[in-house]
Design a binder for these strands. Structure first.
Lengths: 343, 343
DNA sequence: ATTTAGCACTCGTCTCACTTGAGTGCTAAC
DNA sequence: GTTAGCACTCAAGTGAGACGAGTGCTAAAT
């Protein structure tokens, strides 16, 4: 167990290091107001803390820096709650002021605000589109041999796909198909769409259209194989501001992670409610081994959940970031709830 | 005027430097097969070429590197045409094989292929959406107090906007308005939409709807103030592979340029037909002062024009890039023409 | 009149020894 | 238990020397 004094010293060291990114020496600590014992005493305590794995040295005669275990302890037990400034709260509020009624835009703006207020990189994962429900399906002909299929969900999400119409498809068949689909599939979650089509609609279509298989397949293909996991990223270049990332190779590998949706998306997706902090090697991805990722969730309406995350060095302002994510996800929830209340 | 020998030497130097990114010395040149004179002779010629401004030294006793004037001369007069390899041509073709009928996707793929084949960063500016013509307008209600407005163009481009419906708007008014707009505005270029609405449609609307001003304003606002200059970027991290960009500050400022659509878009937009090469300080933007930007145009249907560009260091494989852009823009033209032929 | 060989000179880069300073660990005194 | 004192460590900075790639110039060769 740690003594009071050790707790204090650990906290001071981590706070200082988060601020200055420099190893913290015993003399520097002894000068702080909240510390009243001599540097020698502190040295002894630091040696103990190091032995316990909370601190480490960059070289044998350097000051201490927090280890990942140290950060973990800090986040779990030590960290003082952060009071966001008036301006910061104001900035967040403003994001939700202009009420454009599209979650895409709100999310994009949120990502920008987050990265702006933190100097880290924000990543927001859009909500699971497949949990949303079909509102309307439409085929709009563009020319004699092409058309665009549009799918609208209850959240106002629009998904579309152009396709060319083979000669053996009758345009009235297409129309009939769409009508039937609209009638029968309204309110069905996108994720069940395929299944429902296969089981319930096919017979109906067979009855009412000449060449049902073709028209049906075309509409299905046009709308189904999209993979709409949208990622919104803000402040990509902020990564480069952090002194721990002055190495180009590190930046490059981090960028690859951020740009590749299928690398980062599953990691963000699998978070339960609340705020989760992943420090250094707690992250799955090799490229993030000296980063911390802090995630929170938000929900759109009743069912669909998205994730907000901030990516920074392990030397992160955990306290501030967590406060920010709390406030922001709360705002998002409130806003979206008011749009999509299902009562 | 330059002598034959000077031309040869200049070409050899630039070719070599483009390959190796190292200052080229007289001895290295004299060893090349196509060069038959001694290093001393070459030194003399190099001194002359430097005096004329085509070459420069990194320090007083270093080999020569091309100046911007040197690159300019190379591009205009010296450069040997590049023969693309079978595999490269194959890769480009494959991009257009799977015929997804959406220019957005084709353009995105093209950007990826370009950056992939060059190790530079590709930037493609989407076509001027406003030159496309309105195909259909739709309002799809989401709930009692919200709806999504969808606009489809003749190119299959879909633009949408959710909005909340104020209580004083009658839903039948909305419907009537949309019907009238569709009837009257089909085929009108988006850029004229606003004007046409103001002049021709307003009277009609006044006649047929109770509270025309509101419904009309809402639809207008919902669809108009989007700014759909889409930028497709491929191979962002390629920038970091170039040895001239091992400085983080340079990378950061370049990234800012690439990410900020309104910085780079106007520059790309203002290109005439054909291929244009901007070397170093010929670029307007400060951040691009040691880059070259090579742009080409493509057209979608008959009127709308977009731009493909490659961004790399001034030490760029001009010859290869120009060949690639030629082939790719040709392919894009061909593909899009077949989709949107207006006969 | 060119072209070339030869040589002195320049400058960046690498290495090595040396210094400095921040910081530690340990011991002995308080 | 706490602190002062001191020897020790190591990173980072500095300056001298060696090296090598490359130049410019001059004088000889073609």
């Amino acid at each position: 167990m740690l003594t009071e004094r050790q707790l204090l010293i650990l906290q001071v060291i981590i706070d200082d290091f988060i601020q200055n990114a420099q190893p913290v020496g015993s003399r520097a600590i002894s000068k702080k107001d909240e510390v009243s014992f001599s540097s020698a005493t502190i040295r002894n305590e630091m040696a103990d803390l190091e032995e316990m794995g909370f601190l480490q040295k960059t070289h044998s005669s350097s000051g201490r820096i927090p280890s990942e275990k140290g950060y973990r302890f800090y986040v779990d037990h030590l960290m003082a709650p952060f009071r966001l400034s008036k301006q910061e709260l104001e900035k967040i509020k403003n994001t939700f002021q202009e009420h454009l009624m599209e979650y895409e835009k709100v999310v994009q703006k949120s990502a920008e605000v987050l990265s702006d207020l933190t100097n880290y990189t924000s990543i927001i994962l859009g909500p699971e589109v497949y949990e949303t429900r079909l509102k309307q399906l439409q085929i709009i002909p563009l020319s004699s041999h092409s058309a665009v299929a549009i799918l609208v969900t209850n959240t106002g999400h629009v998904q579309h796909r152009s396709f060319s119409i083979p000669v053996d498809i009758d345009s009235s068949d297409l129309e009939t198909t769409v009508n039937i689909l609209n009638e029968r599939l309204n309110g069905v979650p996108l994720v069940q769409l395929n299944e429902k089509m296969q089981t319930e609609i096919i017979d109906l279509l067979r009855k009412h259209t000449k060449n049902f298989r073709n028209a049906y397949e075309y509409i299905r293909a046009a709308l189904m194989d999209d993979q709409p996991v949208k990622l919104y990223v803000g402040g990509k270049t902020n990564i480069m501001n952090q002194p721990e990332f002055k190495d180009i190779d590190k930046i490059r590998s981090l960028f690859s992670v951020i740009e590749e949706e299928n690398q980062i998306a599953p990691i963000l997706r699998k978070n339960a409610d609340g705020i989760k902090v992943s420090i250094g090697h707690e992250n799955e991805l090799e490229a993030m081994r000296d980063c911390s990722l802090i995630t929170a969730t938000y929900s759109l309406g009743d069912e669909q959940v998205g994730t907000i995350a901030l990516l920074g060095p392990t030397r992160m302002e955990y306290s501030k970031v967590i406060s920010l994510l709390n406030v922001l996800s709360g705002q998002m929830n409130k806003t979206f709830q008011s749009w999509y209340e299902t009562k």
